[in-house]
Write a protein that binds this DNA or RNA. Sequence first.
DNA 1: ACGGATGGATTGACCGATCAGTCTATGGCG
DNA 2: CGCCATAGACTGATCGGTCAATCCATCCGT
Lengths: 222, 222
Amino acid sequence: MPGTRRRSNTERRDESQARILDSAEALFAARGFNGVSVKDIAKAAQVDTSLVHYYFASKAGLFTAVLRRHAPRVNQTRMDSMAAYARSAGTQMTVEGVLRAYLEPAFRLAREGGESEQNYMTLIAQISVLTSDALPGVDTTAFDPAIEAFISMLQQVRPEASREDLYWFYHLLTGAITQSWARTGRIDRLSGGLCRSDDFDTIVEKTVAVFAHGLTVGETPR
Amino acid sequence: MPGTRRRSNTERRDESQARILDSAEALFAARGFNGVSVKDIAKAAQVDTSLVHYYFASKAGLFTAVLRRHAPRVNQTRMDSMAAYARSAGTQMTVEGVLRAYLEPAFRLAREGGESEQNYMTLIAQISVLTSDALPGVDTTAFDPAIEAFISMLQQVRPEASREDLYWFYHLLTGAITQSWARTGRIDRLSGGLCRSDDFDTIVEKTVAVFAHGLTVGETPR
DNA sequence: ACGGATGGATTGACCGATCAGTCTATGGCG
DNA sequence: CGCCATAGACTGATCGGTCAATCCATCCGT
């Protein structure tokens, strides 16, 4: 039979797990953790509900697995991007450059990756505004290393800025970013189509533009 | 019996509705729409589940009612605040002033209001990153008038800025704001207690500081 | 090269609990 | 008395999760 090779057990295992994760990711992103049932996910993945529990033990375990799947890649790409920038810029580092190095990887992943990566970003956006008791014991520390590196680089470029200001700066930045990842289409409607919430290239540009000036210390402009 | 006056039917009605709305608001804010059952809400409000349906027809209807309850007040306070600023500043309006006039009312409401208002802000933060199919036909246009007024005032202060840039500016700003309203405590943990996510006074200051510079047009700083 | 035996992958049937929502009854205010 | 606010009992559907049975790729003894 051409095309349909016989699959080994480990292949079957990986494929099924990936299908479950893909379906879960898409559905969780669309309707939230409690808006989706295990049955929904199993049906979308064309698998029995028991198999979901077989692999991921519980609905919460599945959710955690979804969140963990791409986290290391995002974190690593960010670290690499910032390290590469630091190497190329040397002592000429700018806030704009650091911002761009930190921002681009995740947005590039969302743009060049498939639906899976886009759904993942949407999911991150959703949990970013949730407190822990709205979620099953979810670990939100996966991105912390890159965040700390980001703040350290900002401190290098702006030695006069206080640690507190840098954290607030990050807080505001990450709010803006996650809002963009959510792709709600609200800015599209508000602007009458002038802005498109899925235009990630433009979003990175505008984010860099606004926040690069935002860390400027000194006189408030006119 | 001192203190417990005899209640009329309309008083009972209003009190019960308010109790249901309060409980729903708190629970929805804590666990999201699908994370809460009508039974939970009824129990918290100390009423029967059928009473919830009697007043609000459905769970979705209740959710909509919760969202609508404070919306006009927030919107109106924003409009008043911006109008007052425009009157006092005359031709001396600044980006910083407009920002502060737009931002302060909602944060003041959250600070000076009770738990209800704080829960309301948390709820707004949550739905701001949700697409329409994750929600029961919820109307998110309640704040549009104040938003349009805000953008118009920005345009007055920055006539050279493009309409598109102003909308992107608003997009980034509202992301930062809703992140703050969510009070997830994540920045507290990241900063090692240096920043407190419920310190709304500081948040307004930092937001104004960052975004006032952000709309500056011209050369990117070092 | 072959034919059980083994064990992981997968399923269908089913569990008690809980869901949103309905129906009917009733008690007390106007 | 009449009506509205409220409660209790209940419905069919669906929830997350379990269990024993089945499927099938792989391995081993011959």
